[in-house]
Amino acid sequence: MSDRLTVAKTYKLYVGGAFPRSESGRSYPVHDTKGTFLANAAQASRKDVREAVVAARKAVGGWSGATAYNRGQVLYRVAELLEGRREQFAAEIAASEGVNGKRAQSTVDAAIDRWVWYAGWTDKIATVLGAANPVAGPYFSFSVPEPTGVVGVLAPQTSSLLGLVSVLAPVIATGNTAVVVTSQDRPLPAITLSEVLATSDVPGGVVNLLTGRTAELAPWLASHADVNAVDLTGAPESLAADLERACAGTVKRVLRRRATEPDWTETPDISRLRAFVETKTVWHPKGR
């Protein structure tokens, strides 16, 4: 060990491509699983949620309008950058999740591979879910999946990087933009991920990451009229039903909280890609 004093990082929010502190001026201490202080994280407020939604909405047009090939390349580029930061992520996961170095390494590997898997879906999901509809009449009718819009994501509480990647990547792969509330007690890998996103080609506002109290932030996200869908995966159990009820106010699409946090090391299927798309059917007459 060098006896040099390290430069400690200030962990901030990631909103609209920038790294603001919470407008509330609040922060909260983050500890490792043994209770040792790791850092202070910004404690986002209702206003931060609203600003993140504004940023996400602003980014919808560009991101959903980009070609699927382009989105695939941009997301693949993120995986390249993640690869370059493997050590940092492994160290943060080891600290946040209390796992040994080897396990932390394999979690980072899985997260990078997961990101690559979803990056590859951008220009395939429409072929898998879309269709040319053989209607009984002289019409060309086709159906395509389109992004739902702004998706609020309550990231898994336990799996701070692999879980986060597993819920975030499918949302943006299909062309949505995201407002993510990170794991409350394990937010550091998420913030490092936001630094990767900021230096990648993902446009500002496509992903917005808020650290803070999930129970405080989630209701504002669930009731926000400009949020189109909410992933409740990381919702506190006691709040899940209330959040679903709040979502009904503007008929949001809801991906429900599961009884227990999923095993993120399992190979995913396309259900998360299906959760945040809308099927659009277009008709046109045929004729001479």
Binding site: P134, A136, G137, E278, W283
Partner: peptide, 26 residues
């Protein structure tokens, strides 16, 4: 919108998915 009719309107078929965006349902 979930259904877009171009140079026609109100066409329905069992093979063609029908349904809404936003507050038109899911």
């Amino acid at each position: 919108a979930g259904v877009v009719w171009a140079n026609t309107f109100n066409r329905f078929d069992p093979t063609a998915p029908f349904g809404g965006y936003q507050e038109s349902g899911f």
